[in-house]
Amino acid sequence: MPKSFSGSSSLDNAIAGFSAGAISTIFLHPLDLVKTRFQIDDTVKGLNGKRLGATFNTLKTIFVKNKFIGLYRGMSPSFVGSTLSWGIYFYWYDLIKRKKANGDRLTKLTAIQHLTSSAEAGLITALITNPLWVVKTRMCASNRSDPGAYKGLIDGLYQIIKYEGFFGFYKGIIPSLLSTSHGAIQFMIYEEMKKWRLKITPDKDRERLDNFEYLLMSGSSKAFASITTYPYQVIRTRLQNQKNEMKYLGVFDIMKKILRNEGILGFYKGLAPNILRVLPGTCTTFLVYENVNEFFKEHARYD
């Protein structure tokens, strides 16, 4: 059994992931809010958020209309969803990797093993947390004063189960499950970059990279995964934003309507605030995660 702080290395990873998700969400939620509003906008042809100016103008408009608290609309489901997602994800990711390693060092895993481990952990996480993301999407898409707007996470969950039933919690689940490809690509690249660094600089500590390396590798892997898989986020957001009215009949109907009415760039609406959010968000998440995990290793109480 590997050394651990809590009695389980997988639980250590879950706590580290929970901490990382909490910190990144607190600081970067306003950009997530803007990204969501761009994604649900189906009235403008083209890339409505392609310029950074559009992102900052939207932040300014929200602030002027709803003050500082308006920038944190949807914070409760986002905070719970993000912390829970990262905690669950890293728990299962570590557990699955160790099972695949079968007692060997985790650095011996292949790129495909990292890809499949990440995808499996992502599927489990998506199934558990999708209800939270439905509430978060709808809160970010509305203002507190709008008719029928959710007051918070509990109110949102209550209204969904009351008016839409259990399956209302799983709107957008298909693109959410497809989104595991995003995490799988990101983690495969991240893990392979770490292995590559250890190979070319064997004289350095083989168990730990420095913080700059974590930032560089997490940012690079996230940027590549974001650009290649971004369209599913637009599709998922629009599905999740539907309440009782059915503007879209499903994934393929959304794809057809976006392509016809908004063009290919419609699949990339909100990309600018998304990149602005995910790069510092991912760098912060991985930096906190790796350092908390390192702290646990240094203060391990169990063998």
Results as ranks from 00 to 15, higher is better:
Thr43Phe: 00
Ile40Phe: 00
Ile69His: 01
Lys65Asn: 13
Asp42Pro: 00
Thr36Gly: 00
Gln39Trp: 00
Leu28Arg: 02
Thr36His: 00
Ala54Ile: 04
Asn57Val: 01
Asn66Phe: 05
Asn48Lys: 13
Ile26Glu: 02
Phe18Val: 07
Lys67Val: 02
Asp42Ser: 05
Lys65Glu: 14
Thr61Trp: 02
Ile23Thr: 02
Val44Ala: 11
Gly17Val: 04
Asn48Ile: 09
Gly70Thr: 03
Leu71Glu: 04
Thr25Gln: 11
Lys67Trp: 03
Lys35Phe: 01
Arg37Trp: 06
Gly21Glu: 02
Ala20Arg: 04
Ile26Lys: 01
Gly17Tyr: 05
Phe56Ala: 09
Gly70Gln: 03
Arg51Tyr: 15
Lys45Val: 03
Ile69Glu: 07
Ile26Val: 15
Val44Ser: 11
Thr43Ser: 12
Phe68Glu: 08
Thr58His: 09
Leu33Ser: 08
Ile40Asn: 00
Val34Ala: 14
Ile26Met: 12
Val64Ile: 14
Leu59Ala: 06
Thr58Glu: 14
Lys60Ser: 11
His29Asp: 08
Thr43Leu: 03
Val44Leu: 09
Asp32Val: 09
His29Glu: 11
Ile62Asn: 05
Arg37Gln: 14
Arg51Val: 14
Thr25Leu: 10
Asn48Met: 02
Thr58Ser: 11
Thr61Gln: 10
Gly49Asp: 11
Asp41His: 09
Gln39Glu: 04
Leu71Lys: 05
Arg51Asn: 15
Gly17Gln: 09
Gly21Pro: 00
Asp32Leu: 12
Lys60Gly: 02
Ser24Phe: 00
Phe27Gly: 00
Val64Phe: 11
Ile62Thr: 13
Ser19Tyr: 06
Ile40Arg: 04
Val44Asn: 08
Gly49Cys: 13
Lys35Cys: 02
Thr55His: 10
Gln39Ala: 01
Phe63Tyr: 14
Ala54Arg: 12
Phe27Lys: 02
Asn48His: 07
Leu31Arg: 10
Asp32Tyr: 08
Gly21His: 03
Lys50Ile: 14
Asp32Glu: 06
Val44Cys: 02
Leu28Asp: 01
Gly17Ala: 10
Val64Met: 10
Ser24Gly: 00
Ile23Pro: 00
Arg37His: 06
Lys65Arg: 14
Leu47Val: 04
Lys67Ser: 13
Ile69Thr: 05
Asp41Val: 08
Leu71Ile: 05
Gly46His: 07
Lys60Val: 03
Gly53Asp: 15
Ser24Ala: 09
Thr58Arg: 09
Ala54Met: 09
Lys65Asp: 12
Leu59Ser: 07
Leu59His: 08
His29Phe: 11
Lys50Glu: 13
Thr36Ala: 01
Ile69Tyr: 01
Ala22Trp: 10
Asn57Phe: 04
Leu71Asn: 06
Thr25Asn: 12
Arg51Thr: 15
Phe27Ser: 03
Gly17Asp: 07
His29Gln: 15
Leu47Ala: 15
Lys35Thr: 12
Leu59Tyr: 06
Ile23Met: 06
Ser19Phe: 12
Ile69Lys: 09
Arg37Met: 07
Leu28Thr: 04
Pro30Ile: 01
Phe18Leu: 14
Ile62Glu: 09
Asn48Gly: 11
Asp42Lys: 00
Asp32Trp: 06
Gly46Arg: 07
Ala20Cys: 01
Ile40Trp: 01
Asp32Ala: 12
Lys60Met: 09
Ile69Arg: 07
Phe18Asn: 08
Ser19Thr: 15
Leu59Phe: 07
Asn66Glu: 14
Phe18Trp: 14
Arg37Gly: 07
Leu31Met: 13
Lys50Gln: 12
Gln39Thr: 00
Asn57His: 07
